[in-house]
């Protein structure tokens, strides 16, 4: 936590991420555990989100720590795939670790970890206050701890938010990520299938680790097409969108240049990024997590 001066760039300082074990050695328990998750720890793209969120935690002076090497998969993919035995093994191992350290409160940037720890760990003896980073960021902004200024400006940029199933329908969190994005003063546009009607990115239920079954299309392509049409103002072309009855929209022309698909889940991140590449729009449209957008706007994401 102690800022150290970096010789390469004097305007930067190196951060040391505290581990729960280190704090325990000093007889301390962090107020909040940052549950990084497997994607946050290993997936190169989502590691950038983890780093952005750690910068925010450090920036606002949160008393936090990570489990580091003591963290293990929550068991979510195993449970969704039907392997209840493996799930419970993982869950109990993690619960033993966290209860041993006296963890009370957890924040995580992964909706799958969030859902599993919050809803499925209590039956196995793990009772914690669990919050998703979208809610946490919303609180920081509301409390004025993050000013969302001094960094990159998102003013007027077109952003559409893709709901994560495990945040949205699974846990009824729809407004927190939107409130966070609203702080960017950007041009927020909603996809037709949003909030409770949101379309899955295609990765949930352990699909992330397998080929999809034979079909006519990949789910992430279906979703990316909707996101791109929404961002370019061509959503009228989606008036007969399958699976939802909506009002006709007024067509408008928008350049995709600089547009953003905002996500709040590591698997949505992968699926939407792949979709944008498939549509050859990666030069125009970027996929960002909420934490990256806020850290960039705050000017600390370097």
């Amino acid at each position: 936590m102690t800022p150290t001066s970096s010789p390469a760039a004097p305007t930067k300082r190196q951060l040391t991420v505290p581990t729960v074990a280190d704090l325990a050695a000093q007889g301390k328990v962090p107020e909040i555990l940052f549950w990084v998750g497997c994607a946050g720890a290993f997936d190169d793209r989502y590691k950038r989100v983890t780093r952005a969120f750690a910068r925010i935690l450090e920036h606002v002076g949160t008393d936090y720590a990570v489990l580091g090497l003591e963290e293990s998969c929550t068991g979510d993919p195993a449970k969704r795939a039907g392997n209840e035995f493996l799930f419970q093994m993982q869950a109990m191992q993690n619960i033993t670790t966290m209860n041993g350290y006296g963890i009370k409160k957890i924040v995580t940037a992964c909706p799958h970890c969030f859902n599993t720890i919050k809803n499925e760990y209590p039956a196995l003896g793990g009772e914690y206050e669990v919050i998703h980073h979208s809610t946490y960021l919303q609180q920081l902004i509301n409390e004025g701890k993050v000013a969302v200024s001094g960094g990159e400006s998102f003013k007027g940029r077109r952003i559409t938010f893709h709901d994560s199933c495990y945040l949205g329908r699974a846990n009824n969190i729809y407004e927190a990520p939107r409130d966070v994005l609203a702080a960017l003063d950007a041009d927020l546009v909603e996809m037709k299938r949003s909030k409770a009607n949101g379309l899955c990115c295609g990765a949930g239920g352990a699909q992330m680790w397998k080929e999809s079954e034979p079909g006519t299309k990949e789910i992430n392509i279906e979703r990316t097409e909707e996101a791109l049409a929404t961002l370019s103002g061509q959503a009228a072309a989606l008036d007969n969108l399958r699976g939802v009855e909506t009002e006709r929209s007024t067509p408008s022309e928008h350049s995709l240049q600089g547009a953003i698909i905002a996500v709040s889940c590591p698997f949505c991140m992968t699926m939407m990024s792949d979709g944008v590449k498939n549509k050859e729009q990666e030069a125009n449209v970027q996929v960002f997590d909420l934490a990256e957008l806020i850290a960039s706007a705050e000017g600390i994401n370097r």
């Binding site: 970096s6 305007t11 300082r13 951060l15 991420v17 720890a41 780093r51 450090e58 920036h59 998969c73």
Partner: peptide
């Protein structure tokens, strides 16, 4: 998951690598 504690074949000892060389702008 059984062997590495993660659904991908990464070494568990690399789990905190994301925190290496972590800088924030002053």
């Amino acid at each position: 998951i059984e062997n590495n504690g993660a659904p991908w074949a990464f070494s568990p000892s690399d789990r905190l690598n994301w925190a290496d060389e972590l800088y924030a702008a002053e």
